[in-house]
Amino acid sequence: MPSLLSNRLAKRVLRPAFALVEQRMERATSAFQTDLDALHHAVADLRRQSYGLGLLLDRAGRDGHRMPTATQVDVLVREVRAVTGGDGERTRHDVTVAYRHLVALEALGAGGLPGTVSDVCGRLAAVPLLAPPNGDVLEIGTLHGLFGAGLQRMLRRGGVEARLTVVDPLDGPPAREDVVRGNLALGGGAGAADAVRIARGGFGDAAVRERIADRRYGVLVVNGDHDLAAVRDLAAPGAVVVLGPDAGPRPPGLTGLGRIADSVYCRAATAS
């Protein structure tokens, strides 16, 4: 039996149907090609944006990249709330502002802030939320001085004008006094004479501790393994004490509040 499609009459009858199918296929192919071209353009735009964002936020010149995921931020907000007792909206807002400070300071300053995004932003957000009893801040171990500048700015947002004391040997790369002072200037403020002071030397040096013992500090940030009993003795009643991952056992008089990322938060005993 001859094929139906080889029959001239059948061809004539089916020609309109074939034409309609071809038109629909052409329209579908054209629409698909349009969508594919749009997708190619979108991917190219994303690649350009990602490259520029990577230059700003990748790990070059610092401990790690500065591109947190939504999950990481959610976890950080929960940890900050657990330690500070802050409400969710305020805490998320402060974590967001802390992240913006981190990015801005590393973009403008020399060097970087040590630690992960979660640890740095946790410190910057949590300390003001814990309402330290005064604006005197002691930072033991500073690297480049950028964290102190960020903390000054975060405290100022809460109405506290910080007086920062930095203890560090500053005996060579990467820590140099000229670099640290330049970075600390990014903390802004009214430029009071006692807004920032640097005590060069190790915290284990009794002479250094004597130089900084003229005040009791509302915030004490301890980077490294130092004598925590001596730290406690410099704390004002109710002071906020932040201990890094290398810190030793807490002495009596420092009550643990919890952990945020890699840091442990404590409250100094209040006056009896």
Rank of each mutant, 00 (worst) to 15 (best):
G191R: 12
F147K: 00
P114W: 13
A192V: 05
A149D: 03
Y99R: 12
A190K: 12
R90P: 02
A149Q: 03
N134R: 10
E210M: 07
C121M: 05
R100V: 01
G115E: 06
G109R: 06
A125Y: 10
I212Q: 04
D178G: 10
G88K: 12
G189T: 12
G189E: 01
L113V: 15
P128K: 02
F203A: 07
T142S: 14
G112Y: 15
R197V: 06
R197F: 05
A126K: 11
G111H: 07
L102I: 14
E139S: 08
H101T: 01
R181F: 03
G201Q: 04
L108A: 14
V167H: 03
D119K: 08
V208L: 12
A175W: 02
Y99T: 03
D205W: 07
G115M: 09
R200I: 08
G187L: 03
H101A: 09
V103E: 03
A175G: 14
V127Q: 04
G135V: 01
G148W: 00
T142C: 15
H144R: 08
G204D: 03
V97T: 11
R197K: 05
S118N: 14
L151T: 09
L151P: 09
G189S: 12
R209M: 01
P132R: 11
R100Y: 06
H93N: 09
L151Q: 15
A213M: 07
V137G: 01
G109D: 00
V120G: 01
R123L: 15
L164P: 09
F147I: 08
R156Y: 06
V120Y: 07
E177R: 14
A199G: 11
P128G: 08
T91R: 06
A126G: 06
G188D: 02
F147M: 13
E89Q: 13
I198D: 00
G191D: 07
L184G: 04
L113N: 13
A98D: 11
L164T: 14
G189Y: 09
A195T: 05
G189N: 07
A175Y: 09
G115F: 08
F147R: 05
G191C: 12
G122I: 10
D136G: 02
V137I: 12
G88D: 11
A206M: 00
I140E: 01
V196E: 01
A193M: 01
L170W: 04
R209H: 12
I198M: 01
R156I: 00
R209I: 10
P114I: 05
A207C: 04
L130K: 04
V160P: 00
A131I: 02
R157G: 05
E161R: 14
